[in-house]
């Protein structure tokens, strides 16, 4: 009796979070699948069950939905492929740079590179919209002063992608740097001492000690950066409006358009669910690939 009463009061501690968790996470998960099986017009109360029709339309090459989805997916993939390697390697590069500075300066530079991460994507996008303005933006002003032609950064290719990737790097690379700094500091110092006795160069140290030691963190950064890049929305929405043409119209923009401009929540939900599944599959592949190369190079580790 006493233990039953005790576990009842213990359950009360979990209850408030549990209610939020169920209401705003579990219910939406189930409800989203339910919506995706319906023709769900936001303005109409008649929402007939259509089964897998929304999903079939997604994969029917002739449908509008399919072109919206796959063009968005392709543009999102491009952004992922351009941004993730830079986010990872520049993040690592900044971490190495900060760690090579005299100890009393490290904190300042770490803060300088990390500050943009604290700012909202809408502010970031508008600041870069201004810096990259064709006629009066700071960057073109300098180009013109140096005798170059102004570049239409946001309205032509490949500059639109370059601009979006640059703004994104500036915004979030500091986050990856923080993770790498922590990882570098946890590499056991005696590994370097041992290799110093062997007369190894800094580059050899980096390849044979640093990289294998931070390998799990590297994988973590690759996966989190990939997920973050998949979720891109604010930068193209505000900086290029999806243009030039539809070339930077990313998948999330397509989903929002289908849901709130076309008001078709059923097909938009199907798009969102397939997008999430693709993200999960990509993460699993990255994890598996990394693990299998780890086994092959297992003698490097430790």
């Amino acid at each position: 009796m006493n233990t039953r009463k005790s576990s009842f009061t213990s359950a009360l501690f979990v209850l408030p979070y549990f209610i939020m968790f169920m209401t705003f996470l579990v219910v939406p998960l189930v409800y989203g699948v339910y919506i995706s099986f319906h023709e769900w017009d936001l303005l109409s109360s008649d929402r007939p069950l259509v089964g897998l029709k929304n999903y079939i339309a997604l994969f029917n090459p002739d449908s509008y939905l399919s072109s919206l989805f796959f063009e968005g997916l392709w543009n999102t993939f491009q952004f992922v492929i351009y941004s993730v390697p830079l986010l990872v390697f520049l993040g690592l590069g900044l971490a190495l740079l900060v760690n090579s500075l005299p100890a009393k300066l490290r904190g300042y530079f770490r803060t300088f590179y990390f500050i943009p991460y604290s700012i909202s994507v809408s502010v970031i996008a508008i600041i870069w919209l201004w810096l990259l303005d064709t006629n009066s933006g700071l960057i073109n002003n300098y180009l013109v002063k140096m005798g170059f032609d102004p570049i239409p950064w946001l309205t032509s290719m490949p500059y639109a992608w370059i601009s979006i990737v640059a703004a994104t790097l500036w915004w979030t690379v500091g986050f990856n740097m923080i993770i790498f700094i922590n990882a570098l500091n946890e590499v056991p110092g005696d590994l370097y001492e041992a290799s110093a006795i062997d007369g190894a160069s800094a580059w050899q140290n980096f390849i044979h000690i640093t990289l294998p030691s931070i390998r799990p963190i590297m994988l973590f950064v690759v996966i989190t950066s990939t997920i973050a890049s998949f979720n891109i929305y604010g930068q193209p929405y505000l900086m290029t409006g999806g243009g030039p043409g539809d070339s930077t119209e990313v998948l999330l923009m397509g989903i929002v358009e289908q849901a709130f401009e076309q008001r078709q929540l059923g097909s938009a939900s199907a798009m969102a669910i397939v997008m999430a599944l693709i993200m999960i599959v990509v993460s699993i592949i990255q994890f598996k690939v990394s693990n299998s190369t780890k086994k092959r190079g297992a003698n490097h580790a430790e």
């Binding site: 219910v27 979720n231 999430a276």
Partner: peptide, 17 residues
């Protein structure tokens, strides 16, 4: 385990709720 679920799945049904 829900930390691994992409939030894009939940934002349309949340809007509907």
């Amino acid at each position: 385990s829900t930390l691994m679920i992409p939030w894009v799945i939940t934002f349309l049904p949340l809007y509907m709720q």
